[in-house]
Write a protein that binds this DNA or RNA. Structure first.
Lengths: 273, 273
DNA sequence: AACACTTGTGAAAAACCTGTAAACAACGGT
DNA sequence: ACCGTTGTTTACAGGTTTTTCACAAGTGTT
């Protein structure tokens, strides 16, 4: 079919932190980043490296001016502590010597203000792109949800070790949903992210795949409900034990239980917009 | 066909090609590059992408001015064919739009003349640094998998001392797979890593080599299955004894078993479902 | 209650993927 | 230039997945 290559959000989760006090610049940047579907966090001062680790960032944009005397030391620490993080420095004036020093330290790109936000974004993209290629392509950290274990490295989901036998599309749909737990996603959004291009009007593919997913989930994990329909809107992924599940039972599949709604929330803490 | 020589060595040095006619700039750069021990090749005009492949470059510095009208097309082709190549563009004047376009295309950095050679070098370094990190080390230590012994020092695999008679490609494919045991690798990834450049759409080389590998594996190690197909995705290497293998045998192939990194024995918790 | 619209469902059709074999091209050595 | 080996391309059969479609069932509104 026709694919309307949409440049928007081919990568669902770029996590960027900005350390800068130039509010005008940051605002524009934030708008652009949001449009691209990035997760953004801004700070007006140095963020301790261990906090950066906790944020699981892909890229960091920093103006050393806000770091004061500690700037070089800070950059050095960050770069050597987080070799997988893309670091872009954005300064007012700078000398060749400074830039060379920074780049040698481990900074990936160094741009100077006034800088067009679009270019900053493009450079951050370039840096993270390179980065992603370096480290093993696929985002391979498993996701847990209800009884489910979603393993990107196998393109498959499991319940207590048993595969759901998902096809590729099914897996990608599930992975997307699980990655945005608790959020209602519209069909258009889902289609765009999973299929990679814009959904044609009247296309029911998403519904069909949701059904297939529900079937396979039901088969392996009968006592949980994962995908909820929001009439007129879309779908929401949120694992919860079925109302009609046998709480105590002789053929007790009791082992589950431990997992309750509040504990799933893990991810969302990042978007402290 | 000129080529930077000596493909045999693992080659820790940076291999850089420069496409530019600014002899002054190039000369200084060359001096600096030589001092750093880099292998350098310069050209006054576009170098066909397949020649770039043969050069096994780490980085390419190019002034689009010498490419004329073809510049964008050329950059696009090079970047998509060689996603692992660090590409730095170096122009006279340029607009934000041009730089953004370039970076989006896959260019890693874009600097403008007049540029201090030291900075150019530093940026090329930054661009290749990323890349090198991800590059899996050409380990020469033997790998054990099922009944297999894979010996990179011989470019060959053995079963109880007997060679599988793998060709070079076959060996590299097997080595890659064995090095990522348990993970599903997509064809594109496999091709990229083994062949060194991007897979053309519709290329079946990977499948064909998988079959050859399977044949040779079957011949020497009939009771094991090594390569698993994941429909719509790719292949996964995970040695496991065939279902139909003779469990007890006088010429007992029992000896294997050492390898359990990919624990087939999934922990089925007492879910008496 | 009737209506317009949205969503669930099952099955057929179309598209796609993989294993296989064989032809073809490129290369290296004699 | 010839020949065997290695790597690439192509064609096809058989199977799997994805898309499409018609209709049933459900939801919210007038």
């Amino acid at each position: 079919m026709h694919r309307i290559e949409n440049e928007l959000a081919p990568d669902p989760t770029t996590r960027l932190a900005v350390i800068d006090t130039d509010s005008g610049f940051v605002t524009v940047l934030a708008k652009r980043a949001e449009a691209a579907g990035w997760l953004l966090r801004t700070s007006g001062g140095a963020v301790p490296p261990d906090q950066l680790v906790a944020m699981k960032l892909n890229a960091l944009l920093v103006d050393p001016a806000v770091l004061g005397d500690e700037a070089w030391r800070y950059l050095d620490r960050v770069c050597s502590l987080l070799p997988d993080l893309g670091v872009v420095v954005c300064t007012g004036r700078s000398t060749v010597a400074q830039r060379v020093r920074g780049l040698r330290l481990g900074v990936d790109d160094w741009i100077t203000k006034p800088s067009h936000p679009e270019e900053a974004i493009a450079r951050i993209e370039a840096v993270t792109r390179r980065h992603r290629r370096g480290r093993h392509e696929t985002e391979s950290s498993p996701v847990l949800a209800g009884e489910l274990e979603i393993r990107p490295d196998r393109f498959q989901a499991f319940v207590s070790g048993e595969s759901l036998d998902l096809t590729r599309r099914e897996f990608e749909l599930l992975h997307l949903l699980a990655g945005t737990q608790g959020q209602v996603l519209e069909r258009e959004t889902i289609y765009q992210r999973v299929w990679g291009y814009a959904m044609a009007h009247g296309d029911r593919s998403v519904d069909v795949f949701i059904r297939k997913l529900r079937q396979k989930l039901e088969k392996r994990s009968p006592d949980w409900e994962y995908i909820h329909t929001h009439f007129g809107v879309g779908y929401r992924f949120d694992p919860e034990p079925s109302a009609d599940a046998v709480p105590t039972a002789p053929p007790a599949p009791a082992e589950a239980s431990s997992n309750d709604r509040s504990s799933q929330v893990v991810h969302k803490s990042f978007t402290a917009a």
